[in-house]
Design a protein around this nucleic acid. Sequence first.
DNA 1: CATGAATGAGTTTTCATTCAT
DNA 2: TATGAATGAAAACTCATTCAT
Lengths: 188, 188, 188, 188
Amino acid sequence: MRQKDEGKAQDILRATLDEIQSVGLAGLSIEAVARRAGVATGTVYIYFKGKDALLDALYLHTKQTFAAFVVRDEGLPVRAAFTRLAKAYLDYIVEHNAEIVFMAQMANSPYVTEETRATAALGARPVALLLERGKAEQLLKDLDTRWMMEFLGGTARAMAPLAAGMSPERYAAFQESVATLCWDALKA
Amino acid sequence: MRQKDEGKAQDILRATLDEIQSVGLAGLSIEAVARRAGVATGTVYIYFKGKDALLDALYLHTKQTFAAFVVRDEGLPVRAAFTRLAKAYLDYIVEHNAEIVFMAQMANSPYVTEETRATAALGARPVALLLERGKAEQLLKDLDTRWMMEFLGGTARAMAPLAAGMSPERYAAFQESVATLCWDALKA
Amino acid sequence: MRQKDEGKAQDILRATLDEIQSVGLAGLSIEAVARRAGVATGTVYIYFKGKDALLDALYLHTKQTFAAFVVRDEGLPVRAAFTRLAKAYLDYIVEHNAEIVFMAQMANSPYVTEETRATAALGARPVALLLERGKAEQLLKDLDTRWMMEFLGGTARAMAPLAAGMSPERYAAFQESVATLCWDALKA
Amino acid sequence: MRQKDEGKAQDILRATLDEIQSVGLAGLSIEAVARRAGVATGTVYIYFKGKDALLDALYLHTKQTFAAFVVRDEGLPVRAAFTRLAKAYLDYIVEHNAEIVFMAQMANSPYVTEETRATAALGARPVALLLERGKAEQLLKDLDTRWMMEFLGGTARAMAPLAAGMSPERYAAFQESVATLCWDALKA
DNA sequence: CATGAATGAGTTTTCATTCAT
DNA sequence: TATGAATGAAAACTCATTCAT
């Protein structure tokens, strides 16, 4: 027998993501996902219990991949870590448009279970810690932490579409502007 | 369409909005919309050509209502107009959660026609003009205007959920913080 | 088929029986059978050509086991042999509920081949002979033999559920009642 | 609009019954039912929530129709009522083969809800009352009532197939034999 | 032989849309 | 116009069977 191949689950998740980007969450069909992933319809159901479970799993996976991409605790001083974080945010968002579109569509969908939402939230801990360090050092405004995190995510999401097609140089400058803008907004 | 009861078209639009908030765009069914609006399924088709047309119309309607709510050209100086604008954004988003969810879901959906997208964009002109005035007066950073608009919208959207359940006093303070934060971010 | 482990074929037949009792013939799936038998899905196909063949084999097996259980030609006089038979019927049915359920479900299903039906019928010969002996000796009513056999089977099947949970003593009395009842019904 | 037509629900129930008779419960498909009933697939779902609900409803309907057919309280003396009942049983079973096959298949299926089973059981009350009257008048053996009812049903079911193709005269005689047989079995 | 992942045809079920009333 | 039953195409999901290991 073929051993249950974790790579195949990945293929299916990837295909789901791409399919959503091209037809939207509302237009998503399992058959199209299977075709794109190069497997039979039934195979999707071997790896995921159903459409809901597939989307839930994809959400979690995406959130976690995102967290792994963005967070890197290098013991930098607050300002430097903050800038690094803001740039990483932007990098991710620019390079992973499909994921961003997906997360936006899912954010208010009833597909995501509470459990997944909770687990996904854990990935953001390091960001919260950084912000709290900044507040403790009186470098940042004394605002609610969740607050500031939403602000960073929202800003990055809002900015990313504008980076489309920029040359590397312009992009570097853009990235710098956004990081500064975020810092200016939150600094004490 | 719509000969008789203009209110009925409104009911259907409203019901669509509420339904999307509770089941998501992907879970939307015309029958559920009709039930929620208190009309028969077929009646929806008297007022709107089909599902796509309904969503397209709702998108346009929502965008325009939003623009009307937020924009008010009172000839204020830049800083005051900016603060007014930021607060109005927040007010709208807090009071119109269903609309926000809807717009987020539609943003990357193939439901909206190009024409509607273009028409909807017109509503944002006054905001662009304000920002350009700010740049001309060297009060604001010299950044791309579309850019800054995305930033304002993204920030407001990010902040709004945090206002849930606040007392009027706390909300006023919160609103002030957000307005300041936006200004700080964009000021020269 | 079956080279190696004859016991495995038995396990599969048994598992099929139990599965049908719990989910019905219509709800039967090979995967569930395999799981219950403790083998892999594919293994079922090593011992049986397919689902139909499995059910057909099970039907034959069940009928034959039943016949072997019930029939014992000990040269008893008619009345005694009759009573023994009636009691054995009841014993079988009470102890083999799953088999009874299965036979009932199969009776009007298109799963059983004509050949199997014919072979299965042979097992009932001794019962027919006993009844004919009774008629020849004018102890029993002169009714059609197939008739009387259906009557005995139907009665036993109808009575069996009532024996559930009886104490050994009550069960012995019950058995006696049923045997008498059958005899009274058929006696000349 | 077409008014929801109770006749259509009847058509669907009838079609289900016929379909089961020809392909068995395990081979039943909603599409085939719809085709046989002369409606679209989706229409079945207007009248019945799903396959399970359809079968459950059919079971109840069949049981109740059966009870209405068989039971007729005419204040006859026990023996006469008993004979009438036995003959009616047989008539029903002979004329409603599809229903009998269906009830046999359903008896041990997990399709029938407990509620339906309970409701269906009510239809048999009059039969129980007759038997109890017979016991009170010492005409019948003092056996458990449920017991005797199972016996009558089981016997009739067992006998009915034998009546297939009989001439009216032979059938009348057959009916008489069965009634006598039942009475002999249960009489004190 | 044994396994169980993979297949894809077939089934159930949903739902946008139509249409008789 | 308004209704909601009816339609049927499309989607979700199941499962008998195959086959690489």
